[in-house]
Simulated assay, not measured.
Amino acid sequence: MATEFDALTTEAYRPELAEIDQRPTLEIARLMNAEDAGVPGAVAAELPRIAAAIDAAAARMARGGRLLYLGAGTAGRLGVLDASECPPTFNTGPNEVIGLIAGGPDALVSAVEGAEDSRQLAAADLDGRHVTADDVVVGISASGRTPYAVGAVEHARARGALTIGVSCNAGSPLAAAAEHGIEVVVGPELITGSTRLKAGTAQKLVLNMISTISMIRLGKTYGNLMVDVRASNDKLRARSRRIVHLATGAPAEVIESALTATGGEVKHAILTILGGVDAPTAGRLLSQSHGHLRAALTAARG
């Protein structure tokens, strides 16, 4: 194990920081800030691979496939976080974007001994979700060698699912196991081996891209507007009205009428206003266009 750690840049020891605990707080904060500033550049180096993975993922999801994240510890928590934010943002169903963490929900708040070391646990978690060739499975691991993440990718690939591996070390087993290997090499951490820092930030940025751009490709936005937002509280209802206004420029009374007629569905409301159609027609046109508002607008005007 020690030899394996020595080969991982995320675990490398930095002797120049050996006395960091004796430095002033402001100096440590500046050091951390400078370290974090390098993360976007490391992500930028992987953009061609990230984009290829997203295009492949969106194609699977367009035919009804799901997006599943699997990881242990911080990586698993980041996957669960990204998945949990898709329903309110993009109106996805509870089974469209799924985050699975080694050890189950209890592992979100406390360590579950041995969970990350089990390939079999990953296989069982995927089998419990009945993974098929339409699905997309993303293994997440800072080291790129966590058995749970690697096992998830290997098992999913054997089932024909599209596989993506997100890690922070070059030449990782996770990237080798996946069809699309993404390796964001951020270098050694400020605190040796604390991969919730730069590595965690890098993984969050990549997962943001995977989910957000996939949803853009699936027609979940109109320009940069969240037209599939789920208005489940007062803040989101206010946001819905603002989105319709930004998309249409319509006055408040017209927006309220459109949202009422469409049951609060932002995309449908925009289509009724810009396309000059009633709510049932808007629903039909959006269904025919697989949820793509621009295509539905073209049909409505055509």
Rank of each mutant, 00 (worst) to 15 (best):
A2T: 14
E4P: 12
E4L: 15
E4Q: 14
F5S: 12
E11L: 03
E16G: 14
E16L: 11
A18F: 00
D21G: 15
Q22R: 15
Q22L: 10
Q22N: 12
R23K: 14
P24A: 04
E27L: 00
A29T: 07
A34K: 15
E35L: 08
E35V: 05
P40S: 05
G41W: 09
G41C: 06
A42H: 14
A42I: 06
V43A: 13
V43P: 14
A45M: 01
L47K: 01
P48K: 04
R49F: 00
A51N: 08
A52G: 12
I54S: 09
I54L: 02
A58I: 02
M61G: 10
A62H: 13
A62P: 00
G64R: 07
G65V: 01
R66G: 10
R66Q: 03
L68C: 10
L68K: 00
L68Q: 04
L68P: 06
A72E: 10
L78P: 09
G79Y: 04
D82Y: 05
A83Y: 09
S84D: 03
S84G: 10
E85H: 03
C86S: 12
P88F: 02
T89F: 00
T89G: 10
F90Q: 12
G93T: 06
G93A: 13
P94C: 00
G103T: 01
D106C: 04
A107D: 11
S110Q: 15
V112I: 07
S118R: 14
S118M: 08
L121P: 11
L121H: 11
A122V: 01
G128H: 08
R129W: 15
T132C: 10
A133H: 07
V138I: 15
G139T: 07
S141K: 08
S143F: 03
G144V: 05
R145F: 01
T146E: 10
T146Y: 01
G151E: 12
V153D: 13
E154D: 13
E154W: 12
E154Q: 15
H155F: 06
A156C: 09
A161M: 09
L162A: 05
V166F: 07
S172E: 12
L174M: 08
A176F: 01
G181H: 08
G181M: 05
E183P: 14
V185M: 05
G187F: 02
P188W: 02
T192N: 12
T195V: 12
R196Q: 03
R196K: 02
K198G: 02
K198C: 04
T201P: 02
K204F: 08
L205Q: 11
V206I: 05
N208W: 04
M209R: 08
M209S: 14
T212I: 07
T212Q: 10
K220D: 03
Y222P: 09
L225P: 11
M226W: 00
A231D: 06
D234C: 06
R237A: 14
R239H: 03
H245Q: 15
L246T: 08
A252T: 11
I255E: 07
E256C: 04
E256K: 04
A258P: 00
T262D: 07
E265S: 15
E265N: 15
A269E: 05
I270C: 12
T272Q: 04
G275Y: 02
G276L: 01
G276Q: 07
Q288K: 15
S289N: 07
G291T: 03
L293I: 02
L293T: 01
L293Y: 07
A295M: 13
L297N: 05
T298Q: 11
A299P: 00
A300I: 02
